[in-house]
Design a protein around this nucleic acid. Sequence first.
DNA 1: GCAGGATCTGACCGATCGGTCAAGTACCGT
DNA 2: ACGGTACTTGACCGATCGGTCAGATCCTGC
Lengths: 204, 204
Amino acid sequence: MPTDATAPPRARASDELLHAALEQFATVGFAGTSLQQIADHAGYSKSSVLYHYASKEALLEAGIAPAIERLEVLVAEFAEGRRSDAARGAFIGRFVDLLLGERLAVHLFVSQGHSLGDIPIVKRGNAAIRVLADAICSGASLAEQMRFGVALAGATYALVAGATFFDDDEMSELMNTHSDDEVRTALVDVLTELLIPADGRPTR
Amino acid sequence: MPTDATAPPRARASDELLHAALEQFATVGFAGTSLQQIADHAGYSKSSVLYHYASKEALLEAGIAPAIERLEVLVAEFAEGRRSDAARGAFIGRFVDLLLGERLAVHLFVSQGHSLGDIPIVKRGNAAIRVLADAICSGASLAEQMRFGVALAGATYALVAGATFFDDDEMSELMNTHSDDEVRTALVDVLTELLIPADGRPTR
DNA sequence: GCAGGATCTGACCGATCGGTCAAGTACCGT
DNA sequence: ACGGTACTTGACCGATCGGTCAGATCCTGC
């Protein structure tokens, strides 16, 4: 039978390898991960890894490309649209969805986006972040820039750091007690409060 | 003359090497940095690096230990003291000072604290973060935990990400137009607004 | 049954890794 | 002048790195 759309997503070998690679890259870093580790972790040989993916870089590219592309369209739409409160609210929701839906890739890109700047797909991601920062910062005071920076970076890193520091106790407890929906709601609320003040405070 | 307290801090070879190492670790990652790179960057040979520091790990330890120790005392004082608004305000100020005063070490620890968890000094730092999270999260709602998480992570990562993504244009522009004092003030303001609401909203 | 592509693997390659070692140099108090 | 100490370095080591290649094995269409 050809590619069954309803099949469980983790049957194909290349997907297993990709997921193992992404997990290792996000956990111990791209430079700190060897092809041997990826192979071992996925239950294949190093040669098999290089059969499915031309190189270590290709593995990284395949792993984070979907997340980067989602980020690019999100940023592009936000940057060209007018910055009304409604547009901001929609952006916040979709941004949080991206964070939650691509955790591994986001973690990887966020914590290593600078050191991996030579890799084309990462460069594209960095450029997207820069566009977002421009759209956010243009004409804003330093305090406003700080507010946006803390909001976006905070939302991103709160999740990343959660997976980073609290794999064991607190975070697993927090993440198991609360569903993804609850986390999403709480996160959206905090960002909304930061970026779309309900009281009389001017936004810029 | 013995160690002159008023001498410029960058005369000794071990300091040059340590600074070069810290810079490389923070920029391209601990695993991604070779002793040869550190030596080249500082203008010494690889053997000289290993003469002044017993190993690559020792270099890391020496580099981030001061920042970790400052973090430990800060967290300890905050955790054992009562969480009054005044105590929170004092904590915020000292926390931002730590961020600004130990940029390289903070960047390194924040973005690689998980992957380097085997190294004793990093483990201590992670433990301190965990204590801080406990002190902050105990008894708080998920929304409140998110608020604290976004605030601390956001403040930390806003600076780190600044140095990470915007070495070139925006950040250097932003960082050169504004002094450290201005940045500090803006950051403290945002955190204060997030953690010590002036309006009637309950803190927990 | 058999040809042929897809998949998987061990052997192997040059380069680089972190680290050791002994020799060399420069400066010190005596 | 001398012995010792602090410092620097190139040569060298075993291990591991990312990557190549030539088979094995398996599955499928004919």
